[in-house]
Design a protein around this nucleic acid. Structure first.
Length: 843
RNA sequence: GCCCGGGUGGCGGAACAGGCAGACGCGUCGGUCUCAAAAACCGAUGAUGGAAACAUCGUGCGGGUUCGAUUCCCGCCCCGGGCACCA
């Protein structure tokens, strides 16, 4: 009597055997094609959750599949282990961030082993390890040498709960902190930046080089980078009496063709000119009120579109370069200091915001671009001078139209990318009053954090030399262990850390006490995996060039901008440093959906968590792995349901029974006498291998599994319907073997047990070759075709797969059902779709 | 407002290049086995009408192209996500 399927014993057993055999260790092998399969490394937050199970199961199937296809697969794991939650947890439990972090890493590592993931553990890393973060500091120094590091003062995002500044990318939704969801505040602070904006154009352009990325991620990045084409235009500032001075204010505009419609000029409340120009004038009180009002607003208020716009005249004018007209300068709270130059030429006829502002303050709205079907067009079509200064429109006209009241340009068709734009820019350039320009929404990456548990920024503030990098030879700047975060301490509270000497002049100096954003750690870990134990260099270039780029990257959509944009930036800088030979780190990206319960993301605070450990305890890791992949395609959100897991467990039990039964059957010499059912089963075997192959490569793990279920159904049908003495046992063996091989990436432990212990193979199923299939053998020799009359299926026809169209047509027309439905009608047309259907048109 | 997804049985989902809608699984119902139950196995299962054969309807809505549309085109509705006073 064969054993029944007992997942727990076999899973734990094989995990230790694989470890002992070093089954998943890999090294460079130029003779074989390589693949680098990588899942985003986890933050060691505690226990693993279903999202982890899903993410890492997807990667594991892909890694195991390609290994079986003869590919040299790198599949590493590590931890993104610096970061704020460790400090918060330490404060709560009165311990040290390191204690909490490393305990969690061990816990997660144990869970990953228990899930049977095929990692090369020798490459394991943690970003909080000194041997890792020292290279992060080295990167900082190298970026500095390349002019990509800057310390500057600007309005930054401050999270009052995390007590640190944040990068723009880390402020999400309605102006909240990505990690704790608190509303962030704006503060003017001096901080460290990586100049990611220097790569803005390339980061945008190279999205086109990533066909293996989801459109939506690329769209989000393009959106974030926010490239706008337009022009910079210089306006001369007038003095208090209205006479033009030599001082100019530059604006960025995407619509230089509307310059003739500029009837006022706007400055952001934070613009330095505002305070300077109104100081001591009669305009100061009203202007200051607007400035103060804007400063008080939270990020949420400020980004609200339907908020009423406020402004005040500052008492000065600027000269419109196209017509010499003097237009009043206002301060307006809807003008952003962070975008463009913080100054805007207002064209109320063509911009909805300016339109509203003009209406509120009674400013003129001269129409300069009108659609041909607007009554104004007839009136103004040859009008070069301004005669109309207001419109009866309800909204601004921002679309295409024809230029009017626009001097020599009158009559030119124009729009966002219209002829008018090009002409006006050329004219401005000729006269030295402006030039074509491109503006990005992307800001430089603020990387300094006022927190302890991070990578210390290797910089020294010297009173005489200024900012000095820590010399390469002095790296790493070790994060001291004796900082007590439970007392709210940071590095800035530890003189023994920050008191130092200047490496340049030797005088007393102060070490930087900010640490780096954790996203700097995760921007290059995938490269370190290629050569994780190297202590002489960040990585060996040959090794990196062998394994990289990552062929398949798998992770959550929440990093669509953050981690994925930063990593692309790092890679481009590494390329410029000649550390790598490629410009994009991740060739193919799969963003997996969330695992939900009752329609909501599982979370401890919500109390709707299904613990993977509980599922493993009941069903084993194999059933859990297979089930989470079977539930839905990987990129879709899925709703957790317990019942389906029972079904998967049942399926594995049926596979187990089938394989063990077949394995016990003696292989007799008696020839199979029941040819047709055997033929069907053999055909099914070939078809399913092909289908599973195709499905895995398209990440359709759910349909791959259902194909395996179909094969098992066919196999057990055969066993049930064909009398024992007529069964082709060698065929059944082949089917059983095939099933085990197909299942190996999904249920590695059960497959291994069946392979080695039941089928008696000496070597691991995970080193076995993927089964071969023959498309000819997978094709049926008879096919059932549907016969339609006027678009409705009226009959079915079983014909030889190779039957000619004429034969099929004749057979179809001869069917009684067809005669019935064409009675009294004339057959006009008969279409034959080979092997699919016959369509008869009659009327 | 702009940009991406998505809408198919009771449920998760399938249909890859315009060709039999609902594979596979869950659930439900019926059956076999059993003293009984569980497990396991077998069968049925989109809706409506019909004893059945069968017929009609059916992939968010309305049009269109086509012999034929879940699939392509046009116009909408709803849900999810991203961006948004970006000049």
């Amino acid at each position: 009597m064969a054993r029944s399927y007992e997942p727990h014993d076999i899973e734990v057993k094989w995990q230790s055997v694989w470890d002992a055999e070093g089954l998943y260790k890999v090294s460079e092998d130029p003779a074989r094609p390589k693949k680098y399969v990588l899942e985003m490394f986890p933050y060691p937050s505690g226990d693993i959750h279903m999202g982890h199970v899903r993410n890492y199961s997807i990667g594991d199937v892909i890694a195991r599949y390609w290994t079986m296809r003869g590919t040299n697969v790198l599949h590493p794991i590590g931890w993104d282990s610096f970061g704020l939650p460790a400090e918060n947890a330490a404060i709560k439990s009165d311990s040290h961030p390191a204690t909490w972090t490393y305990a969690n890493i061990e816990k997660q590592a144990a869970s990953f082993r228990r899930m049977g993931f095929s990692y090369d553990w020798d490459r394991r890393l943690a970003s909080s390890d000194e041997e890792y973060y020292r290279w992060g500091q080295w990167i900082f120094i190298k970026f500095w040498e390349r002019g990509l590091v800057e310390r500057k003062s600007s309005p930054v995002n401050w999270c009052p709960s995390c007590m640190t500044v944040l990068a723009n990318e880390q402020v999400i939704g309605d102006g909240v902190c990505w990690r704790c969801k608190s509303v962030v505040q704006k503060r003017e602070l001096e901080q460290w930046y990586f100049k990611i904006t220097e790569y803005a154009q390339e980061l945008l352009d190279d999205l086109d080089e990533l066909p293996g990325w989801p459109e939506r991620v690329k769209a989000m990045q393009a959106n974030w980078i926010g490239r706008s084409e337009g022009a910079e235009v210089d306006f001369k500032l007038c003095d208090a009496s209205g006479e033009p001075t030599d001082e100019t204010i530059t604006v960025f505009t995407t619509r230089p063709d509307t310059l003739f419609g500029c009837s006022f000029f706007l400055l952001a409340p934070e613009h330095p000119l505002v305070a300077r120009l109104v100081e001591g004038t009669e305009y100061a009180p009203s202007v200051n009120e607007v400035v103060a009002g804007a400063a008080k607003e939270t990020a949420i208020d400020r980004s609200s579109t339907d908020k009423e716009k406020n402004g005040a005249f500052i008492g000065r004018c600027v000269v419109n370069p196209v017509n010499g007209e003097k237009v009043p300068v206002w301060v307006a709270d809807y003008v952003l200091m962070e975008y463009g130059t913080g100054a805007v030429m207002a064209v109320p006829c063509g911009d909805q915001r300016d339109f509203e502002f003009a209406r509120k303050y009674g400013l003129p709205i001269p129409p300069v671009v009108v659609p041909a079907d607007d009554p104004l067009y007839e009136q103004l079509k040859d009008q070069t001078e301004r005669v109309v200064t207001d419109v009866d429109w309800d909204v601004a006209h921002a679309d295409e139209g024809i230029m009017v009241q626009s001097g020599q340009f009158t009559g030119t068709p124009t729009g966002k990318h219209g002829e008018g734009v090009t002409k006006v820019i050329a004219w401005l350039e000729e006269r030295g009053q402006g030039h074509a320009s491109i503006n990005f929404r992307l800001r430089d990456w603020l990387i300094s954090r006022q927190r302890y548990w991070g990578n210390p920024i290797p910089a020294i503030h010297c009173p005489s030399c200024g900012l000095v990098p820590v010399p390469e030879a002095d790296l790493p700047v070790v994060l001291p262990a004796d900082v007590d975060v439970t007392k709210g301490e940071t590095l800035a509270d530890h003189p023994e850390f920050y008191e130092t000497t200047c490496p340049a002049c030797g005088g007393a100096a102060r070490r930087e006490t900010d640490t780096m954003d954790t996203f700097t750690c995760s921007s290059w870990y995938y490269l370190r995996y290629c050569d994780a134990r190297n202590d002489a260099a960040i990585w060996d270039k040959d090794k990196a060039d062998y394994w990289m780029p990552v062929d398949q990257y798998i992770g959550g959509i929440e990093h669509a901008i953050l981690h994925l944009l930063y990593s692309r930036f790092f890679t481009k800088v590494f390329r410029d440093m000649d550390l790598v030979d490629f410009a994009e780190p991740f060739t193919n990206l799969l963003t997996q959906g969330m695992v939900k319960l009752d329609g909501a993301t599982m979370s401890k605070s919500r109390g709707n968590v299904v613990a993977p450990e509980d599922m493993i305890a009941r069903y084993g890791a194999d059933a859990l792995r297979a089930y989470i992949l079977f539930m839905a395609p990987p990129d879709k959100d899925l709703e957790w349901s317990q019942d389906g897991l029972d079904g998967m467990y049942r399926f594995l039990g049926r596979v187990w029974r089938y394989v063990t039964e077949v394995a016990e059957e003696p292989v007799s010499d008696s020839p199979a006498t029941d040819a047709e059912p055997a033929k069907v089963l053999r055909r099914e075997r070939h078809r399913v291998v092909g289908k599973v192959e195709d499905d895995i490569e398209r990440f359709q793990f759910n349909t791959a599994l259902s194909a395996m279920m179909e094969l098992l159904n066919a196999a057990t049908d055969y066993r049930r319907t064909v009398p024992e003495e007529n069964r082709d046992v060698s065929l059944e063996r082949e089917v059983a073997t095939t099933l085990v091989l197909l299942l190996a990436p999904y249920v590695p432990h059960m497959a291994e047990e069946l392979w080695r212990e039941v089928l008696g193979v000496q070597t691991s199923v995970h080193r076995a070759e993927w089964p071969v299939w023959d498309p000819m053998a997978a094709a049926a020799d008879e096919v059932e075709m549907a016969v339609q009359v006027n678009g409705k299926v009226r009959a079915r026809l079983v014909v030889d797969a190779g039957a000619s169209e004429d034969t099929v047509r004749e057979l179809a027309l001869a069917l009684p059902k067809v005669a019935e439905h064409t009675e009294g009608l004339t057959v006009r047309k008969v279409l034959v779709v080979p092997r699919k259907l016959v369509s008869i048109v009659a009327n």
